[in-house]
Structures are given as C-alpha cells and as structure tokens.
Design a protein around this nucleic acid. Structure first.
Lengths: 185, 185
DNA sequence: GAAGTTCGGTCAACAATGTTGACTCCGACT
DNA sequence: AGTCGGAGTCAACATTGTTGACCGAACTTC
C-alpha cells in the first residue's frame, strides 16, 4: 500500500476539526479555510479528501441515539423515558441537530435530516408499539419530540429553557405517553 | 419633497423580489444579484436601500397569523381549531417559516424566529388560558404546534404528509386540546 | 540500483458572493 | 442660474468554495 500514514492522520485532523466547527458554528458560518487552519493543513487538501464542503459536512454530522433506554422500559413509562432522553440530549447532539436543521436548506442535508428524524425517533418508537395505528402514533410522538427540540433549541423558547427539568420531564413525559398509548377516554 | 417617485417603486420592486426569492429559495441560496436582476436594478442599489442582505431579509420575512379563529372558538375546541389553522397554513407561510428556520443560524434571524414563535403561538394561546400553569401550558402547546410544522416541513416526514387531513386535524386537535386543557385523569 | 508511478502536500488562480466607493444625472429648492 | 441631495451605474474589493499545476517522497517494477 502506498504511504497512508500521514494521509490518515491529516484526514482525521480535518474530520475532527470540521466536526467541531460545524457543531459550534453551523454549516454556512464555518469556512473551508477555517477547517484547514484548525487542522493545520491546506484548504485545497480539505476538498481533495472530502470532494466538497457539503460532503464533508454530511460525513461528519451524524446524530445517533442510544435507544436501549427506550427498549428496556415498560411500555407505560415509555413517554417519560423519552422525555428524559430528550432533555439529557445536550452538548454535541445539540450542535449536530442545529447544524442539520440550519443546513437543511441544502437538499442533501435535508435528506440527511429526514433520515435522522426517521431512524432516531420514528423507528425506535414504532418498534415498541402495536395496533393498526401504531405507525401514526409513532410519527406523532416523533413530531412531538422534535417539537420539544425545536422549541428549546431552534426557536429558543426562554420560558421552557428556564423551567425545572423535573417538571418538564413529567409534563412532557405524560404528553408523549398520551400520544404513544392514548387513554381511551 | 425630493423626488421619491422612482425610488419608492424600485425599493418596492426590490422588496417584493426579495420576498419571493427568500421564500422559495431560502436565505443562503438567494443572492443579492438575483434579487437585483429580478427587480430590474443594480446589486449596489439593493444594499443601498436596505443596508445589507440580512436586513433586507429581516424586513421582508414576516410571519403573521390571523388569530381571530383562535379567539372566537369555545375553549374546548381550541385544540382542534389550532390544528386546522396549522394544517391550512400553506403557500407563503411555509416559505417564510422555512426561511426563518434555515436562516436562524444568523443571530438576528434567530431572534426574529424566537419573536415569531412567541407572538405567533405562545401569546395567542396564553390569552385564552387561565390558572397558575397557564403560561406553561401555552408554551407546551406552542412547542407541539411548532413540532407539527417541524415534522411536516423541516424534517419532511412523508408519513405525516401523506396522511388524511381530517384525521390529522382530529388527532392533533385532541392532542393539542389535552395540552391546553388537560383531562384530570 | 534506476526508472516510473502514485499519492500527499503547497501554491496560485478561478468564478461567485456581499459590500463599498467614485462618479454621473436629474429633480427640487434658493 | 446655481447648488444640493438622492437615485442610479460601474468598477473594484475581500472572502467564499473549488480547481489545476507543480513538487516531493515512497513504493513498485525492471
């Protein structure tokens, strides 16, 4: 194999520098030259390694959720557990989510956001539900979950942000629970 | 008065051209030169009239909601009415909402989105509610409402988009109603 | 060991972007 | 008549993503 020693390390330098910058500054506000500088290399090399800024973005911005907590909880506590999961989702997840939302003006990034929404929220919930409208309920719960992240992070609702976490978990938990397993009033 | 005849008309040409382009192509994908061409004028004039592309964006992208339908409906049908309102919100409102969401990487646009969320959803609902937790319920309902628009337009959930409108109104209506006026189970 | 090929790296350049400044022009007021 | 202010035009600037030309080193092949 031809020398890959140096290439791998610089490629990874670019990758991690890009991930950090995209998370903290978003897609449009981070420049290829910034990434190159942070990685200690040349802007041209960034493009050479990842073809384009957009592909680099797509390669670095992955949002995953450990869905074990959603699987091992009894069905009647699924809403509460999901609420906990969402409100504990801080740090890097926030940056990735916002970068995807903000960048989704770009078609490919929009596709990525759609996929993320699907297999981050819809699918795990769908697997826990049964009944003819299980799909619909899963999608609605996913929309409610996304709505929480939207209100907190995208819209920046100060009222919700300042709320006591326990109360928010409780209220949003029962709300999600009602969507997932409706009370047949 | 000094000649304002021509200036007003070109200024309005720029305004409407910008509004249309921002709505259909978003903030980052519409260029000042495109706006100028559409308005039949010069890129420099666009900046001269509106100081910057961002200020032009803020001046054109306003999202308003006719909240009368939320005021004249009995309280126990507020959720359903809100769901109808959200799902009828098509056309230009969709473009403005998406432009704000996508552009809110920019701090000033983020402020605008926060204000819009506040006085489009939170305030009208807050006014219809009473009780010690009225503010919280209004904010949560606003988050759910935003979540619907997020799932439909930002994430582009195909499952929800293909759903029967009447069923979506019914399901989301009762969901919102439960948030606004909780059943004390 | 010599030649050659392939890849990482550097540099300069390109087109397109938002924005600015210099300059012209024309209508309005003194 | 003259001057003043704002609208319009044009050329330029810095910055953006991206490309192509070159260089050097390491591995392969004879």
């Amino acid at each position: 194999m031809l020398q890959t020693g140096s290439s791998v390390s610089t490629r990874e330098s670019i990758h991690s520098a890009a991930a950090q910058l995209f998370r903290s500054r978003g897609y449009s506000r981070t420049t290829v030259r910034q990434i190159a500088a942070e990685a200690g290399t040349d802007p041209a090399l960034v493009i050479r390694h990842f073809k384009s800024k957009e592909l680099l973005f797509l390669e670095t911005m992955h949002l995953t959720l450990d869905d074990e907590p959603l699987l091992d909880v009894p069905l009647e506590r699924l809403g509460e557990r999901l609420a906990e999961l969402l409100l504990d989702l801080g740090g890097s997840a926030r940056g990735v989510f916002l970068a995807l939302v903000h960048g989704s003006n770009e078609p490919h990034i929009h596709d990525r956001l759609r996929d993320t929404h699907e297999h981050l929220f819809v699918e795990p919930l769908r697997r826990r539900l049964s009944g003819p409208d299980a799909g619909i309920r899963a999608r609605m719960a996913a929309a409610v979950a996304g709505g929480l992240l939207y209100a907190l992070w995208v819209a920046g609702d100060q009222g919700l942000l300042r709320m006591d976490r326990a109360e928010l978990v409780s209220r949003y938990g029962t709300l999600l629970q009602d969507v997932l397993t409706p009370r047949t009033s």
